[in-house]
């Protein structure tokens, strides 16, 4: 929640946050998530990409109680409330890590333009498709 006023300029750019690190061993994943949430106040066209070890950020059932760090994984499910609704996950990265879509959290958003229908935020894409997503951005932020 933020008291930042609405962005006045009205210029909307396409922002892609690229996530390539596993969640708890380093600070990158949490830093990225915080920047995404802060950036959401500026009402830009935001997408997130998860590839390489970044796909581990979305694995369901994470419980950090015994390693003494905050479990920020539930926060990904709140991204839809911040109008961040495009989470691209690379199929090849999942497969190389012995993971499938069923190992990931269910992340939904309510579609304002479709009578608030609940829709999945995660979009599985292959490497070629993800490259095209990257090519179509105005700004890329890497973590």
């Amino acid at each position: 929640m933020s008291d930042i006023p609405e962005e006045a300029s009205g210029i909307v750019k396409k922002f892609l946050y690229v996530n390539r690190k596993a969640p708890h061993g380093t600070i990158y994943a949490l830093e990225s998530l915080e920047v995404v949430l802060i950036g959401a106040a500026f009402e830009q066209d935001v997408s997130l990409a998860f590839l390489d070890d970044g796909v581990f950020q979305l694995v369901k059932g994470q419980d950090t109680a015994d390693i003494g760090v905050k479990n920020f994984s539930p926060t990904y499910r709140a991204l839809g409330d911040f109008e961040v609704t495009k989470l691209y996950v690379e199929k090849e990265s999942l497969a190389e890590r012995g993971l499938s879509k069923d190992d990931l959290m269910e992340i939904m958003y309510e579609d304002e333009d479709d009578d608030w229908e609940e829709k999945p935020s995660i979009k599985l894409v292959n490497r070629t498709e993800l490259a095209a997503v990257m090519a179509g951005q105005d700004v890329i932020l890497s973590f």
Binding site: R77, A78, D81
Partner: peptide, 13 residues
């Protein structure tokens, strides 16, 4: 909301 998502909600939420 915090219990569920580990974050405070956006104002619009």
């Amino acid at each position: 909301y915090y219990e569920e998502y580990q974050i405070a909600p956006a104002v619009r939420v």
